[in-house]
Design a protein around this nucleic acid. Structure first.
Length: 575
RNA sequence: CGGAGCGUAGCUCAGCUUGGUAGAGCACCAGCUUUGGGAGCUGGCUGUCGCAGGUUCAAAUCCUGUCGCUCCGACCA
């Protein structure tokens, strides 16, 4: 491609709409433009990189035995009602009406479509296992689109769905996808690491997210450097000890605490009750009923874990609702004497005694509380949020926490959807059984931005060879067709193109500084510069992006570039 | 949806407090000069000052409403 024949609208300054580096670079390098919040046009250069990522995904999915297909973006409301997700996914669904007032949803994923298809087309164990995938535009009515392609209303996702006869088969399918994902991200030049993920309301045992470490990521990941433990903070647990048991002493004692409404206030003079000797009492509304949640005073509730208990639809109770439920306002709440509502307590409180908690009477607390003696706990559960420095559950070393971008998620679904859609098969003995499913997603457009977030320097993007819009940029410093530099540039351009290299010829009549700055900004992996100075020595300059420039004799330049490409490709080959 | 901020040229922004015929730099077009890291000079093009209503002789500027964008929280590939 010739630079003057395409559209690469580079920007000298960052548009105000972009906050994080990768978003700025997407705009400055002329890869994308915004149409509306969370909705982007991919310009020729952005589209080329995106297409290369898609192709890597496609090759590895095919290699893993998955079957590419394409499902509709426009989906009838009824199938979402059948799965129950018309309600549970209500907030993210884009809804449209046709001329006959029939309601449709724009696909955010495709479990309903694929499971319905499997119900019709798969009848026998002989047809299993199968794994179907597509790479397509998805729609989610994100409450807050963010950071360019990171969280968009419209984005490209690869989604795959496996069908197996048995749980073991499903685990094997899951493992294949896990391995494929590892290869995909490695080939994209991305450093990712898998973490255990929250399975949420869907349930099931296995779920991993593939994370790209980045300060701008929206996820927090707990990890251990001593072993391989790594988990999303929504799921992570630690080996933190339970609350120390003390000598069982006095019976419960009520004492006045006028104006004290926080853990912190109670820990100070004149009460001096340490936070780890307090029981924090929270009230949520789930299914229109109050539920009480108890965690230790120095811990934070993890709402994702609570969702595993209460289902997806719950919210904190308002102060008025709390007063009606237990007879006190926040700050004086406790679980003692509560029998009408479920009480969920964090495991860390199990066996704790000599604790202090609210008296359910404004301005009063209770001390010498023994939780198992004095509170009717409905269920014990892991509800607290892990903090850095706690011992690893596996090896005991101190845990660390870092932020990360989620680019892929593999999920063992079980039979949730196959039962709802009657995706049944006949086994060898003639029995009808539900298929055991898995689902697997990769955010393709997000992956593109994650690569940029990870691969850049002060001058711009540093594309991994595999996903660069063009692998080589030829930069003649004089573009007069009769000038030696341009003649040689044309020759290299023709030869490299003939070798199957993606090459762009910067044939703009611009000053050298402009061309160099643009090539660095866009981030082509290899730049070949041809100017008077080096041509006088019959040399050209090869400069791998982000590395040192080295001159080579003009007659071996093409060979040298091909060698660099070989080495670069080998480095991206997965183990 | 709750909290915060911002909407003026393709991009970055000034002007608004104190109302009086819309500006700069970059980009773009023409010409001259220049030619190894975002050149210089001369001339030129570019705007419903987000939109609607109000106050006023007069509104980018003051008031009200509304829409959009960005950031923090809940959601997630």
């Amino acid at each position: 491609m010739r630079w003057t024949q395409t559209l690469i609208p580079t920007l000298r300054e960052s548009p105000a709409e972009a906050e994080i580096l990768s978003h700025k670079l997407l705009l400055r390098a002329g890869l994308i433009r915004k149409l509306a919040g969370g909705v982007y046009t991919f310009l020729p250069l952005g589209w080329r990189s995106l297409h290369k990522i898609e192709q890597i995904v496609r090759e590895e999915m095919d290699h893993a035995g998955a079957l590419e297909m394409l499902m509709p973006a426009l989906q009838p409301k009824e199938i979402w009602e059948q799965s129950g997700r018309a309600e549970t996914a209500r907030d993210v669904l884009f809804k449209v009406k046709d001329g006959a007032s029939r309601e449709w949803f724009l696909s955010p994923t495709a479990e309903e479509v694929i499971t319905g298809l499997a119900a019709n087309e798969i009848n026998s164990y002989r047809q299993l296992p199968r794994n179907f995938y597509q790479i397509s535009v998805k729609f989610r009515d994100e409450i807050r689109p963010r950071f360019g392609l990171m969280r968009a209303k419209e984005f490209i996702m690869k989604d795959a769905y496996s069908f197996d006869t048995t749980d073991e088969g499903a685990t094997a399918s899951y493992q294949k996808m896990y391995d494929a994902y590892t290869r995909i991200f490695a080939r994209c030049g991305l450093k990712t690491f898998p973490v255990e993920a929250d399975t949420g309301v869907i349930g099931g045992k296995f779920s991993h997210e593939f994370m790209v470490p980045a300060e701008t990521g929206e996820n927090e990941v707990v990890y251990c450097e001593g072993c391989n433990y790594a988990a999303n903070i929504e799921k992570a647990t630690s080996g933190v000890p339970r609350t120390a048991t003390r000598e069982i002493g006095a019976a419960i004692e009520k004492f006045a605490t006028p104006g004290v409404a926080t853990i912190e206030a109670l820990s100070k003079e004149p009460y001096k009750v340490p936070a780890n000797r307090q029981i924090k009492t929270l009230v949520y509304i789930a299914d229109s009923k109050p539920v009480i949640v108890l965690i230790r005073g120095d811990d934070q509730l993890n709402e994702a874990k609570l969702a595993g208990l209460l289902g997806k639809v719950f919210r904190p109770a308002t102060p008025d609702e709390i007063f009606v439920a237990v007879g006190a306002h926040p700050g004086s709440l406790g679980g003692i004497g509560v029998t009408k509502f479920s009480i969920y307590a964090d495991e860390r409180l199990r066996g704790a005694n000599d604790m202090t908690t609210g008296a359910n009477e404004d301005g009063f607390h209770l001390r010498s509380v023994s939780i198992e003696r004095d509170i009717e706990v409905t269920q014990w559960f892991d509800l607290r949020t892990v903090t850095a420095g706690e011992p690893c559950v596996k090896c005991g070393k101190p845990l660390k926490i870092r932020r990360a971008i989620e680019v892929g998620h593999v999920f063992k679904l079980g039979t949730k959807y196959s039962e709802k859609f009657d995706a049944l098969y006949l086994d060898e003995t003639g029995n009808r059984k539900p298929c055991v499913m898995g689902c697997y997603g990769i955010g393709v457009t997000r992956t593109l931005q994650a690569v940029i977030e990870q691969c850049n320097d002060k001058d711009g993007i540093i594309w991994p060879l595999s996903v660069a819009p063009y692998q080589v940029c030829i930069t003649p410093l004089n573009v007069d067709p009769n000038h030696e530099a341009m003649k040689l540039a044309e020759k290299f351009y023709a030869e490299l193109t003939a070798h199957g290299v993606d090459v762009i010829l910067d044939d703009r009549d611009e000053r050298p500084g402009v061309k160099f700055k643009d090539a660095d900004l866009v981030g082509f992996p290899i730049r070949v510069a041809l100017g008077e100075k080096s041509l006088a020595k019959a040399e050209v300059e090869i400069k791998p992006r982000g590395k040192a420039l080295h001159p080579v004799k003009a007659e071996v330049a093409v060979k040298a570039v091909m060698k660099l490409l070989e080495v670069g490709k080998a480095a991206l080959r997965p183990a």
